[in-house]
Design a protein around this nucleic acid. Structure first.
Lengths: 247, 247
DNA sequence: TCGGCAATTATGTATAGACAATTAAACGTC
DNA sequence: GACGTTTAATTGTCTATACATAATTGCCGA
């Protein structure tokens, strides 16, 4: 019997199992598949991707090892419940985090401006000054208590469709997560004394220590979005757990 | 041709690949194979464990994914350098960080106390109250400018030899890193307004925002050390860079 | 109705073989 | 000795198959 092989992956240099793994990751991280949702079985995946069971098994095993899914014999694979700790290393989904604590989530858009990049914007997004950008300021609430102020710049050259979205209802972070499978994020974490504006938004005193997380998200070399998250220092902390050895 | 299989693993319920993985981990974590040391090749391992190449490959791939080893084609597999920074936060080695910026590094020990754990100490190190501990307070300088106050507790039951070390010359963090290179850390990152004492040490004003990193380091189940690092918010930030893929 | 047993299904582990990609090392030439 | 070229060692990926293990489902009989 001749050794009939399926064609090599379209995406040059990307292994089949990595392709599958990535596709599942994107669906999970973006929230398309919420925690508890069922992940396609190995049989379904091998048909969809035209490969052997071992290949999809490798992708699924890796996801299980990284804690993104849990697998149960006879039942199938399911999106894992995100635990508070491991989440910090991943991208920060404020909405999911608040809801995990059982609190009511609400977001309010307090500023929107579509404009040509100022020098300062340009530096943050690493684009030419004058490039078209979208600047959004939102406040996230948990049970009507403000927990974080989000100042976001979106590179409209990279994500033109963002211009047409009504972000009064949609969290910009969530929308982008679905739109653009991010490849790399860079975080800068600082402590600053609250400015008058931030203090007003967060309902704290001016000068109170705030934890500021600045994040640039890159995809294929370009910065997609730059976001500054300001948390009141008194009520928020990041938790990061890691080890060189397996978890 | 009959299907001759090697016998099932001796250790009931333990998969062959897990057995191999565990054996290698132990050798690395224990320090028997120091960073940079060569790990046996797949060929050597499959002979030693009487199994197929795919099985040892699974073990080695898992170790590579967890960052314990690095693999290079044609060269082989090697024990990774325990930088711990590649995972998340580049904060382990203050000295290296300062020297990387081309500044003169100096550490000053401003407090040392070998004592029985108070209730507060015990909670931080997760030991019984009354266990022997070493408490150190140091200030790290870059070009004679204070950059961080380090408050450290060391569990002397876990690292008895720390009691005999003169930490006026040696950075306790560095010393411990060499002592237990492959450990697991948990970080809590907060923003707080500087207390009077911290402000004095860092030469800033009381109330200025400080970035506080609290870290517990575990090794084989026990907390080795607990350290609180207070950075002046105005001049310090953490940087974390990562991709969505397995950490 | 309920308890227990059997069938089914999905994952878990393992094998042997194949070919690709990378690159250190050996070799040969000038 | 300096330089390209070939060789071979090592990891990377994939296939097809096999049997093990766990757990849900449903059937059957008391």
């Amino acid at each position: 019997m001749p050794d009939v092989r399926t064609p090599r992956p379209r995406q040059a240099g990307v292994a089949r199992y990595a392709e599958i793994q990535r596709a599942l990751e994107t669906a999970i991280v973006s929230g398309d598949w919420p925690p508890g949702a069922r992940v396609p079985s190995e049989q379904e995946l091998l048909k969809r991707y035209h490969c052997s069971r071992m290949t999809v098994n490798k992708a699924l095993s890796a996801l299980a090892a990284s804690g993104l899914i849990v697998r149960r014999r006879r039942s199938g694979s399911f999106v894992a419940q995100p635990s508070a700790e491991k989440n910090v290393l991943q991208i920060h989904d404020t909405e999911a985090e608040i809801q995990r604590e059982g609190k009511a989530y609400r977001i309010a858009l307090v500023g929107r401006s579509e404009r040509k990049a100022t020098k300062r914007d340009a530096a943050r997004l690493d684009v030419e000054a004058g490039a078209r950008i979208l600047a959004l300021t939102s406040i996230h609430f948990a049970d009507d208590k403000p927990v974080v102020v989000e100042d976001r710049l979106i590179n409209l050259e990279a994500v033109p469709s963002a211009a047409g979205v009504d972000f009064t209802e949609t969290s910009p972070g969530n929308w982008l997560l679905k739109k653009v499978p991010w490849s790399e994020a860079e975080h800068h974490i600082r402590a600053v004394n609250a400015t008058e504006e931030v203090a007003r938004h967060l309902d704290i005193a001016k000068g109170d220590a705030c934890l500021v997380v600045e994040r640039r998200t890159r995809y294929s070399g370009h910065i997609i979005t730059h976001v500054t998250l300001s948390y009141p220092g008194s009520s928020y902390q990041l938790v990061a757990r890691f080890s060189p050895a397996p978890v």
